[in-house]
């Protein structure tokens, strides 16, 4: 990752917290997948979460938009607490965008229809306006010429960029990324990461689960390491990579950075 694309992380972040997770626990049956998570995310902050598989990183961010339900503790997103209240859940989902590892584009709809689905049916936007909005974001992710095509006709990297644009069309306040480049062929990873860097430049709050350490170094405010359902350690990228505090962190880093 060239240093030209690194985004300044020294700017003072606002103290305003947009996501607060307080002593959150989750069990899958008897398995304690998330053990006492405490996390505060500030506006415009960019966090990268890494860790071995099974550590709960995906489950953590899936709890933030209620794709998974937590059993103990509190999660508050932009002042709205996540409980069984359906209205709250829907509100949170319109403010939080999610990008999946396997893109999950709707194959029976064209690209532009994929993007306008949310705005039309959730934000009740007229079709013309939704399409203009969609084209704006398609251009942002450099894929405007494919608007009338179908997902099956695009490459993996193109599909993921469309997926990012689809989430952006809802004008979210926070973007969650669940291993966005893990399912891509190597030559397509850069095009997706470039889009994510552009997003960072514009000040979007981002939580990214990823193993792309170059991306973390150049863009993240904080890098968190998770293992066995706990956030073991978190620090600025520089401190995190240069001075890992815990043995588990050191072990993990030695395994992925070689």
């Amino acid at each position: 990752m060239d240093t030209e694309s690194s985004v300044t992380t020294e700017q003072t972040l606002s103290d305003e917290a947009i996501i607060e997770i307080i002593d959150m626990h989750k069990w899958f049956g008897d398995f304690h997948v998330l053990q006492g998570i405490n996390l505060t995310v500030h506006k415009q902050e960019r966090i990268v979460i890494c860790g071995p598989s099974g550590s709960g990183k995906s489950t953590l961010i899936r709890c933030i938009n209620r794709l998974e339900e937590h059993q103990r503790g509190r999660i508050v997103v932009d002042g709205i607490e996540l409980t069984n209240n359906i209205k709250n859940i829907e509100k949170v989902r319109t403010e939080v965008g999610m990008v999946f590892q396997h893109f999950n584009l709707f194959p029976h709809l064209s690209i532009i229809e994929n993007l306008t689905l949310g705005p039309i049916w959730v934000r009740k936007v007229p079709k013309k306006e939704a399409e203009e909005n969609a084209m704006y974001y398609l251009e942002k992710v450099h894929i405007a010429e494919q608007a009338r095509k179908y997902p099956g006709q695009l490459s993996g990297g193109q599909q993921q960029r469309v997926a990012i644009a689809r989430s952006l069309c809802m004008n979210p306040k926070v973007m969650l990324f669940d291993e966005p480049t893990s399912a891509l062929d190597p030559e397509m990873i850069k095009e997706v990461l470039d889009v994510m860097i552009d997003l960072a430049r514009e000040g979007m709050t981002m939580i990214v689960v990823s193993h792309e350490m170059g991306f973390a170094k150049s863009v993240a405010h904080r890098v968190l390491f998770m293992d066995f359902g706990q956030i073991v350690e978190g620090n600025t990228p520089h401190e995190f990579f240069e001075n890992p505090q815990h043995d588990r962190t050191k072990l993990f880093l030695s395994q992925i950075l070689h």
């Binding site: 794709l67 999610m98 689905l117 949310g118 689809r166 989430s167």
Partner: peptide, 21 residues
Amino acid sequence: KGQTEAAMSLGLRPPTVLNLV
């Protein structure tokens, strides 16, 4: 399952998810 999850993440309600996706 990812289709349902993507649709719900956009904020769509279950009946709409069923009908359109």
